[in-house]
Amino acid sequence: MELLVAIAIGTLTAVGIYMTLRLRTFPVILGLTFLSYAVNLFLFVSGRLTLNAAPIIGTPEPYADPLPQALVLTAIVISFGMTAVIMIMAIGGYLSAGHDRIDLDAAEDGDAK
């Protein structure tokens, strides 16, 4: 099972990075979403994989490590916030510039200085 999860994390990372290397905003944001999945899973498995061991006191032991779970829980919610912010930035960029390319053109580069 560990091998499967590791392959899943690797796949999500690779897809995420490939998508973030695209030239338009929307695929880049999707790529970041994939990367968030990978990172959250990675953080989660740092508590190691356990079956039937939800960290609810009173249920039969052993318990899974609750700390990575707590960290990942807030990370999931924050990822949403981040995605939402870059999404509105992408929309703003598209609506003001008229295109959704992510690289600065030479002309725009001059403006940005």
């Binding site: 690797g10 990075i17 899973l41």
Partner: peptide, 19 residues
């Protein structure tokens, strides 16, 4: 794709080693 593959193999391997 090559760069993404390298990163994916690296992260996947790291996760496997850790688990």
């Amino acid at each position: 794709a090559g760069i993404a593959g390298i990163a994916g193999i690296g992260i996947g391997g790291l996760a496997y080693a850790m688990m």
